[in-house]
Design a binder for these strands. Structure first.
Length: 490
RNA sequence: GGCGACGUACCCAAGUGGCUAAGGGAGCGGUCUGCAAAACCGCUAUUCAUCGGUUCGACUCCGAUCGUCGCCUCCA
């Protein structure tokens, strides 16, 4: 398979460092506020990559950090008058909640910066010993000019960057682009003892220390948002490779940002905490189901920006409903279908053969799409193709299905389920709605029968009242061509 | 100003140096239906921002122009 590498600016053949093992690090959140849907785009992207890699037979070790000490967390804690870890823990907890609801599989390890201070100090010391970092008044800085490769990931040269740099007031730095590995503690700040006095880690170093600790000095894939390329990932790479003399991550896979239209200026801009234009993931989940969010987030390519709006979410929901409808219709037909005879395609009718061929081709087409830098949009199109074919097939049958018909539908359903799972959709799409308890079903069946009688007597007002009242409760009735009436939650 | 990405139908969105430019949403017409809903069938890009160039041939490669976005400061 091929994955786009931001380091080389092109797609490269993906070959893991170790045979069957993929080691992956995703830059997690600085837990200063609620996770918003832009954050979750990154993590859901990583989740899809991981699931597909596993589908492909790799064992994946995924590490995703929490940066739980930084200026903004400290500020927020001061405003609230609580310890900084209270703030951090609160948002970490919320992260887990929304992540679980989105069916994002848990990473293998979620290391936290504050729990790795000794590792961080050791790494900084290593850099000082190598002569690429220096201490100045209790701070420690990485000397950018000592690292010849600096700027490669973000495609810029030190000279270019200096032009755009504002004058830095604090001048413990030897070079304006040098960045802090360790910051001397200001009064009343959280701090730890270190060889350079009391202080706390700078922003980038924790990722290097923790990635190396859990994945080794070289690993396969480094993910995160595109806005992290500079300075975060550039600095991470520089300090890591300066320390070890080895490549840090092989593939740098930063994803496109979530954008949103500014209602005042009509301009599209990235969703971020600093612009205060974000939609908390928890709020969106009040309104839209998790699978619809997933459908929305994978509707384009992960490297492209994605524009958020309620209308787009509603569209994603409609896409999801289309698939769900197909599954519902299959389920009605396959109710009590329990037959493990093999499908004899050769002697089947052309319609059966056609659906079978469509479903059978999914594996190859889906893999071709996903092997090409995780093209989820293409992959979804492949699945929609089969859903359409199944719908067409079902519509062609006038509600009478032979066991061969059922076999090919069962086969198609299995294929669709398998591949929707690979993309991380939950069983909620194809499983029966859990709100439908048996008694509910019985009660609705009674109403359906009453309505049926009314319809036979052409008492349309009664029939429609039943349907409308149920509709108001979120229950939709469908009269099928054969005279059968089905119900579903809307 | 520097670096990078992008501009495909009403909307979202994949894609390819030459075979009908995927898929979805929305709309319209039809089938089915007492009416709906859902589904199915048909229609909605002679064209891929604009202008040049390379080529037998480009939407796809190159250049310019216009537009949008991101990074250059904290940010998934």
């Amino acid at each position: 398979m091929y994955i786009y590498n931001n380091l080389s600016n092109r797609k490269e053949r993906f070959i893991p460092c170790e045979d069957n093992q993929v080691k992956m690090y995703v830059c997690g959140m600085t837990v200063q506020d609620k996770p918003h849907i832009g954050h979750m785009k990154s993590f859901l992207t990583a989740d899809v990559m991981r699931r597909y890699l596993e589908y492909r037979g790799y064992r994946v070790k995924l590490v995703q950090n929490f940066t739980d000490v930084d200026d903004k967390i400290i500020n927020r804690a001061n405003q609230e008058g609580v310890p900084y870890l209270t703030v951090a823990n609160r948002y970490i907890e919320e992260y887990y909640q929304v992540s679980d609801r989105l069916n994002i599989r848990r990473a293998d390890i979620y290391p936290r910066a504050t729990e790795h201070i000794p590792d961080i100090i050791a790494l900084i010391q290593r850099l000082i010993d190598k002569g690429v970092a220096y201490e100045a008044a209790g701070d420690v800085y990485f000397a950018v000019e000592k690292h010849p490769d600096y700027g490669k990931l973000s495609n810029r040269s030190i000279a270019d960057m200096i032009e755009g740099t504002r004058k830095d007031v604090q001048s413990n730095k030897k070079h304006p682009l040098d960045f802090a590995l360790w910051k001397a503690a200001k009064p009343d700040e959280p701090h730890w003892d270190s060889p350079w006095g009391k202080g706390r880690p700078g922003w980038h170093i924790e990722c290097s220390a923790m990635a190396m600790k859990y994945l080794g000095e070289t690993f396969d894939i480094h993910g995160g948002g595109l806005d992290l390329i500079f300075p975060h990932h550039e600095n991470e790479r520089a300090q890591s490779e300066a320390a070890t003399g080895k490549p840090f991550a092989h593939f740098w896979c930063e994803g496109g940002l979530l954008e949103i239209e500014n209602t005042a200026t009509k301009k599209v801009e990235k969703m971020s905490k600093s612009l205060n234009n974000f939609f908390a993931m928890s709020d969106i989940l009040e309104k839209f189901e998790p699978d619809a969010v997933r459908m929305f987030l994978i509707s384009g390519h992960y490297r492209s920006p994605l524009n958020f709006s309620e209308a787009r979410m509603a569209e994603a929901k409609a896409r999801l409903d289309r698939l769900r409808e197909t599954f519902r219709n299959m389920s009605f037909i396959l109710k009590d279908f329990d037959d493990d005879a093999t499908l004899d395609v050769e002697s089947s009718e052309p319609e059966v053969k056609e659906l079978y061929e469509k479903a059978k081709a999914v594996r190859e087409k889906f893999e071709a799409a996903m092997d090409d830098d995780f093209n989820t949009a293409q992959a979804m199109a492949v699945l929609f193709d089969v859903a359409k074919a199944a719908n067409t097939f079902m519509a062609s049958r006038q509600e009478r299905f032979s066991s061969t018909d059922k076999r090919v539908l069962d086969y198609s359903r299995g294929i669709l389920q398998d591949f929707l799972h690979v993309l991380g959709f939950s069983d909620a799409i194809f499983a029966e709605d859990t709100r439908a308890t048996d008694i509910t079903d019985d009660l609705i069946q009674i109403l359906i029968e009453v309505r049926k009688t009314a319809r036979m007597e052409k008492q349309w007002a009664i029939a429609d009242t039943i349907r409308n009242r149920l509709e108001a409760l979120g229950i939709a009735l469908e009269d099928r061509p054969g005279g059968e009436t089905r119900w579903k939650w809307k």
